[in-house]
């Protein structure tokens, strides 16, 4: 599941929380204001952990479940922070056909964190992403802004070794 609960402890600062309060105050009485608040909360904190979702629910006067339901419906929202090394595997049509799954499985097995989550040390996050526009190189994986094309499962270890 892409939205499993994060393993990284919450580390929001009072400044971030004050920023969120200001956003909530702006949208509290706006119909449909919950989603923009969630979007801006994600910009402030980088993701939407339970602690932040509770602040939104209490601030907007709605049940936590409503916030959580929205956060798991739209792929825009992340329940997990991104790692220092943000690993993405393309699941666009070409990469799909060329066997992206084996690449992804290997990465998940190596790092021990499921798709959509982050490793316990906060170093790596793993996501499957929509087409990155490098279909000629399928299957493609990326680490931050570095692109690795024509991947085979055997090459995964070599790529990961560059990011320690």
């Amino acid at each position: 599941m892409p939205n499993t609960k994060t393993v990284v402890p919450y580390s929001g600062t009072p400044e971030q929380e004050a920023q969120l309060k200001a956003v909530i105050a702006e949208y509290k009485d706006v119909p449909g204001g919950t989603m923009p608040v969630m979007q801006q909360a994600q910009e402030i904190f980088g993701y939407l952990p339970e602690e932040v979702q509770i602040m939104i629910a209490e601030g907007m006067g709605i049940p936590l479940e409503e916030v959580y339901g929205i956060s798991t419906f739209y792929s825009l929202y992340n329940l997990n922070p991104k790692g220092q090394y943000k690993i993405t595997v393309c699941l666009g049509t070409a990469c799909y056909v060329k066997g992206y799954q084996a690449i992804l499985d290997k990465i998940v097995a190596r790092l021990g964190c499921p798709v959509g989550s982050i490793s316990k040390d906060g170093k790596y996050s793993v996501d499957a992403t929509r087409c990155v526009g490098a279909c000629g190189l399928a299957p493609v994986m990326m680490v931050n802004d570095d692109v690795y094309g024509r991947m085979t499962p055997d090459q995964v270890d070599d790529v990961l070794a560059k990011y320690k």
Binding site: M1, N3, K5, E65, E66, G69, F73
Partner: peptide, 16 residues
């Protein structure tokens, strides 16, 4: 409430 989407949609509580 309803969590996730499409075939994964299910009734549940926040954060599983």
């Amino acid at each position: 409430g309803c969590n996730e989407r499409g075939f994964q949609t299910e009734i549940g509580s926040p954060f599983g």
